[in-house]
Nucleic acid binder design. Sequence first.
DNA 1: GCTGAAATCTACGTTAG
DNA 2: CTAACGTAGATTTCAGC
Lengths: 168, 168
Amino acid sequence: MTDLPQISEQPEPIVLDAIDRAIIARLHDNARIPNIDLAREVGVSPSTCLARVRSLRERGVIIRYTAEINPAALGYTLQALISVRIRPGARHLMEQISDELRTEPEVAQLFFLGGSEDFLIHVRVRDSAHVRQFVLKNLSANPAVALTETNLVFEHHTALSAGLRTVL
Amino acid sequence: MTDLPQISEQPEPIVLDAIDRAIIARLHDNARIPNIDLAREVGVSPSTCLARVRSLRERGVIIRYTAEINPAALGYTLQALISVRIRPGARHLMEQISDELRTEPEVAQLFFLGGSEDFLIHVRVRDSAHVRQFVLKNLSANPAVALTETNLVFEHHTALSAGLRTVL
DNA sequence: GCTGAAATCTACGTTAG
DNA sequence: CTAACGTAGATTTCAGC
């Protein structure tokens, strides 16, 4: 899925009180916590808690609930970051290239960047031959691509979203 | 949380059949789908489905269930990628620096890299002044840091894990 | 908007194929 | 390993504060 556009959204500014933030933090940590337990932990009744969770979902604060999958279990044990520069005359093709890349099963994340590089692609692959093949097929073969640089990922950590640590 | 180490794990190799993969794909899309619906969609009985989901959880295929939170709703509307190079004589401090960075609320992801750069940090911040302050305080002030480079993120896309598209 | 109780539905252990 | 049954407990609606 995609993050929401970062400008000129929010018809009504989203206001979250301490209970909302506590709910968010707990659901981020465990999306399947029973509503009754969640309610007790944040200090409201189950029905109130349910109404708040729904409101958060409807206002787009909670984007979705997802299961984190261990990619190694699926046979993809290697990760790499590939930075890509598009030829200056081909910048109008960036949306199309992005759409094509996102259909490739190896692509885990895609960043559009400002600065000297245009894309950063986070891929999950079987081995180094696989990443080489990915670059050749999906990037080097495209005449709009000016330059690529591949870095292997040794470790990858993800953290709780900003602004939620203090309520845990 | 952290991805599992990428080498020498799996006492027993994890084998997943088509039903397991279908379950994984649906739980990745919606971690809160009722077991009864999940069972119907993948074509097994609810009790069988529940047993499979548990097994996937116990074998570490499903790492956890999490709610994706819209960072913009929390007031963090700007994203940046910061690449960091550590001084060659200070490489032994990398673990310590990593641990310190991960306690900062702005840090969403942290990559340990091979190649010319050592770290890549994905941060979520309020504005450009905030990211500048982050770099000054957490990186430039550290004598082990040789070089940093900050790129603003215009868009960020995340995709379904590799190997699951075909079963959807 | 919050609370508490009633009805519906789900999860999950047990039994059996 | 898989399917069916039964119970305990959760979710969700609704009336009242």
